[in-house]
Amino acid sequence: MMAYMNPGPHYSVNALALSGPSVDLMHQAVPYPSAPRKQRRERTTFTRSQLEELEALFAKTQYPDVYAREEVALKINLPESRVQVWFKNRRAKCRQQRQQQKQQQQPPGGQAKARPAKRKAGTSPRPSTDVCPDPLGISDSYSPPLPGPSGSPTTAVATVSIWSPASESPLPEAQRAGLVASGPSLTSAPYAMTYAPASAFCSSPSAYGSPSSYFSGLDPYLSPMVPQLGGPALSPLSGPSVGPSLAQSPTSLSGQSYGAYSPVDSLEFKDPTGTWKFTYNPMDPLDYKDQSAWKFQIL
């Protein structure tokens, strides 16, 4: 009977010793046993002879290597770790002494450095960015050149030099007046198309007034536009458009034309069986010896 009264063996659950049927240790109110408190290391007290050895090595170098620390530790009968900690504390003490010396050398008012006064946003004049500046400075420094007289040679050079070769001289006033084509001369031969040399188009003023001019072949195509416009036809070669000034309004060009419109200028042929003959000019830059190549039959 006494065997049943004795408590059973101890069981360990999660490293906790349980005594038989008792489960009081598993209750929430019972805390787990805490780790033992780490003991504080005792402070090391250095003797005068030990301090002399350490100070002598510190005077040589503030960062001794492990071999120098072990050698000193053997002399003063201390572990190497204590020597390492002593050098660490000695360097910190040396830095603190240097900072105190710097503070003593500075004057009393030198510690508080005078800061520059901050400028207020409204006091300083700042350039306004509302208006974009002129990058080319046209509004201040540029002045347009004065327009020359209508009959000045410089204007003629600016007008005619675009179309004339570089080897030719500017046309005088008398020749510029001949550039304007007359109405009857352009409409006299509506079906004849003559190819003149390129030099005649640039230099010869008579080429624009003769039936064999460069633009005589364009007349049949330009004249039928007159009834559609409801007024006189516009002429690209009329009046002052080739003269001194090219800047004319469309209203000033509306009254200039080749001449009176005639039914002869239409595109319809009077004789459907007729042929169109292209007159060959020996001055043509295209060297075609066979003139029969310039004739064709309209079917």
Rank of each mutant, 00 (worst) to 15 (best):
F46R: 13
V180C: 03
R176L: 10
Q62S: 10
K277Y: 12
P33F: 10
W86C: 13
A73P: 12
C202G: 06
P107V: 03
C202V: 08
F87L: 13
V242S: 02
V226N: 02
C94A: 09
D65N: 11
C202M: 07
P125Y: 07
E268P: 04
S152Y: 07
A3M: 11
W294K: 00
D65A: 11
S141D: 02
S235D: 01
Y195V: 07
Y67V: 07
L16Y: 07
A68N: 07
E52I: 08
G20R: 10
P244W: 12
G274C: 06
Q248F: 15
P240K: 06
G110E: 03
P190Y: 15
G230V: 15
F201L: 03
Y4V: 06
T159G: 00
K75A: 10
E70K: 01
T275F: 03
T123R: 11
Y288F: 09
R91Y: 15
G239H: 12
V264M: 04
S203M: 10
K118N: 03
V157K: 07
Y280W: 15
K38Q: 15
E168Y: 11
R115H: 05
P227M: 13
T273N: 03
P190N: 03
A92C: 10
D65I: 12
D265W: 15
I162S: 00
P31A: 08
T154P: 07
G137S: 06
L286P: 02
R95Q: 11
T187C: 11
Y261S: 02
D287C: 12
Q84T: 10
V23C: 03
F58A: 12
G255S: 09
T154D: 05
R91C: 14
W86I: 15
V13N: 00
S292K: 13
S22C: 07
A156Y: 15
Q297P: 01
R48D: 14
P149D: 04
R69T: 15
S223E: 01
D24Q: 15
V23T: 02
M193Y: 05
D271E: 04
L57R: 12
L51N: 14
P227E: 03
Y4M: 00
A166R: 10
P145N: 02
Q106F: 07
V131E: 04
G255T: 03
A29Q: 03
A260M: 09
G259D: 04
L237Q: 03
Y142A: 06
S19E: 01
K88H: 14
W276F: 02
R48F: 12
D284N: 12
L286W: 04
K75V: 12
S22F: 14
S203T: 09
P149N: 06
G217D: 01
S212V: 10
A68Q: 09
L16M: 04
A192Q: 04
S249G: 05
S212G: 10
D284M: 13
T47C: 07
V131W: 06
A121D: 04
D140N: 04
G231V: 11
P9D: 00
